[in-house]
Simulated scan of single mutants.
Amino acid sequence: MLSFEEIKFLKQKAKEMRKTIIEILYNAGSGHPGGSLSIVEILLYLYYKEIKIDLDNPWDTNRNMLILSKGHGCPALYAILADIGLFSREVLKTYKKLNSILQGHPDRKKTPGVDMSTGSLGQGLSVAAGCALADKIKGSPYKTYVILGDGEIQEGQVWEAAFFASKQKLDNLCAFIDYNGLQLTSSVKDIFGNRDLASIWRDLGWHCVEIDGHNFEEIDSAVQLQVTKPKMIIAHTIKGKGVSFMENKIEWHSQKISQQDFERAMMELGR
């Protein structure tokens, strides 16, 4: 259970990370604000509580690992990797620049702390299941975490991986769906249908819980729950969380942040 001090610390970090994300995207002139802002609490919790990276050897796989399958949300990941000391904040200014270690999607070969190169949607759960199975075979105590987009799970490969993970009883695999309800051009329900997503995952043999994805206590309770099967956490989030004019707006899935947008966002976040 998180202490009062830990929750206070993480909430403050969340505000800082949102400001950093806005700065990253404003400087780059492009990127994905909505889905980056919606996963801040999930990433913060995992990197401050579950994933302990050796700053001198960040590519060491003898630890818990995280795969950001919805790779377009990488500004949030980069903000946190800089915050924990894997590279300087100055490097964040090079996001999406030529020869930068911070590209528009995570690149394991370039960026310390990135555990898988992602961007082609639908692949992350398959790789995460493979990592979890490898740890099972080796008798390693580590866990693999993966964050999926709610639009991303329309990819067929996700469901193939879901069947595989269930069959292999991968209780060391913990997945999150960033369920902000909006994808590139429409709402998820308009495209995927009004389905009982939790029941679907349970029918596939996963332990599934639904939480408020911005509530650290609920994230903690879901992650720490001990189960004997793979775990799916449906995290109900707000696209563009923290910036009023971006919240729940489809157009902020991917849109340039103007100087006016930047100033307004930073004022709201407490510049």
Rank of each mutant, 00 (worst) to 15 (best):
T228G: 04
S199N: 13
R195Q: 04
L182S: 00
T185V: 04
L170E: 03
D212E: 08
T144L: 06
S140Q: 08
K138L: 11
S126I: 07
R108S: 11
C131T: 11
I234C: 02
K109R: 15
G151W: 05
L173F: 06
Q168A: 14
T228I: 07
V223T: 00
Y95I: 11
E160Y: 12
L182C: 00
K96T: 06
L102W: 04
G130W: 02
Q183T: 09
L133K: 08
L204E: 15
S140Y: 05
P106K: 15
D220S: 09
V209E: 15
W159F: 05
G151K: 06
G149Y: 10
G119A: 04
I177H: 01
Y95Q: 04
E160T: 11
K167N: 06
I147G: 07
Y95H: 06
E155L: 03
N99F: 14
E90K: 15
S140R: 03
S100F: 04
E217F: 07
G139M: 10
Q103A: 10
G124Q: 09
P141S: 06
A128N: 10
F192A: 02
F164V: 12
W159R: 11
A165K: 07
N99E: 11
I191N: 08
L204N: 13
K136E: 09
Y179A: 05
I147M: 11
G119H: 11
G122L: 08
L197P: 06
